[in-house]
Design a protein around this nucleic acid. Structure first.
Length: 376
RNA sequence: GGGGAGAUACCAAAGUGGCCAACUGGGGCAGACUGUAACUCUGCUGUCUUAUGACUUCGGAGGUUCGAAUCCUCCUCUCCCCA
């Protein structure tokens, strides 16, 4: 995979680049919709591609391994064939499930032993077999197995955890080098920086991770409940060390504001469930501000969902109608909300990229930020 | 015409002498959600701007009792069965 930096902003660390994958080019900065079980919840792939203009999406190793199972995905010829998404796919390793399903797993040096949330069966995820599984899924970008630590986190625990994540990385990377893609296109392997909210740990982790000749590098363990300023500080610390010529991926982030702040700090790739999950729950990110569409005040507001929106749904449907759908628990409601939010996120990063190239990113950022945060 | 059952908050529905301003659903109103166990979860939902506080409530009117949504009398209404 090659990554070409096209422009670096003069006032911030924002970058515009192009990522080349076995499934096409991705202009960065980019937001990647999350498709955990091989589907971006409530959004048809045709819409995802043509209306939302998503370029790369996520899948999840843990979830896809449990269901439908790796044998099925292999029989299908990989996840791209299975779900019809022909753009790049990045798969998370299950490291986030180490955090989110912490009650169902035990960690050891060997790996993470999970008790399936579906049927209670036990499954060991190791740095090595997680590479194998992602080979079988056929993701364009495979993530290293890591431990995403919670917040707050004791320093001693964060340090030990980070060190184990580093050892896991070494095993995983070796295994990655010793195995081949299964479907005729290159697969890449991203290491992940950990270290919780401790500057010295983050620095150490960034250095260790940078010593691996990877196609890109990820920042994990953030947006797990820490204050925003801490997250931003950690991004600064880490990006100061990570190789400039490689893409940086900030895992699981975030709100539109978080993403703009991340871009300003030199992050190239983002993913988050927020546009889809919060959308399903009635939260809309719009050019005018944040809307809780369930609120009574939208009951008779027949204006478009977003008058400046780029999606078909933005001018097709009114706020009042969407509110009615969500209130009535109609399937169409979460669909429209998810499509709108994703389109908004993708348009946001497209604009950011254009502003970086035009050289007025910082101005634009300062102008747009208050609106992104504003609650309507 | 005869026999039976019942009326509780926006709706449904518990409660049958004090622990009842009243269980639980639904609805309504608000909040949360960041590498997705999530179309999920949390709070509030008689009135009083706040309450470990006050006041008014369980079809209506009387009554019994220290005390009634709960017991008694009458009234009004609803539903079911038989003619």
């Amino acid at each position: 995979m090659s990554f070409k930096l096209e422009k670096v902003d003069q006032n911030t660390n924002a970058r515009a680049g192009v990522l080349e994958t076995g499934h096409g080019l991705v202009q960065t900065p980019i937001f990647m919709p999350v498709g955990t079980v091989g589907s971006v919840k409530a959004v048809d792939f045709t819409f995802l591609k043509e209306d939302i203009k998503a370029k790369i999406i996520l899948g999840n190793t843990y979830h896809l391994y449990l269901r439908p199972g790796i044998d099925i995905i292999e029989k299908a010829g990989g996840l791209h064939k299975f779900n019809t998404w022909d753009g790049p796919i990045l798969t998370d390793s299950g490291g986030y499930q180490v955090f989110s399903l912490s009650a169902n797993r035990k960690l050891s040096e060997e790996g993470a032993m999970f008790k399936s949330h579906i049927d209670g069966s036990k499954h060991l995820f190791t740095p090595e077999n997680v590479v194998e599984i992602q080979r079988s899924i056929g993701s364009d970008i495979m993530m290293a197995l890591d431990e995403c630590t919670p917040y707050p986190c004791e320093y001693d625990y964060a340090k030990k955890s980070m060190e184990m994540t580093h050892r896991w990385l070494d095993r995983g990377f070796t295994h990655y080098k010793n195995t081949q893609p299964k479907y005729g296109f290159n697969q890449h392997y991203f290491p992940i920086v950990q270290g919780s909210v401790f500057e010295n740990l983050r620095k150490e982790s960034a250095k260790v991770i940078s010593s691996y000749d990877a196609a890109g590098y990820a920042i994990g363990g953030l947006s797990v409940g820490e204050p925003h300023h801490m997250m931003y500080d950690m991004i600064d610390v880490v990006n100061d060390i990570l190789p400039k010529e490689k893409p940086r991926y900030l895992m699981g982030v975030g709100t539109p504001e978080n993403i703009i702040e991340g871009i300003a700090r030199g992050v190239d790739m983002f993913d988050c469930v927020m546009p889809t999950r919060n959308g399903r729950n009635g939260m809309l990110f719009t050019s005018e501000g944040i809307i809780n569409i369930k609120n009574k005040k939208w009951e008779d507001d027949f204006s478009p969902i977003d008058p400046n929106g780029t999606s078909y749904v933005d001018y097709k449907y009114s706020k009042a109608y969407l509110r009615h759908l969500i209130h009535s628990n109609e399937y169409l409601g979460p669909q429209i909300a998810s499509i709108h939010n994703l389109a908004f996120y993708l348009e946001l990063v497209r604009q950011a990229r254009q502003k970086i190239i035009d050289g007025d990113f910082n101005q634009w950022k300062n102008a747009i930020l208050p609106k992104l945060k504003q609650r309507l």
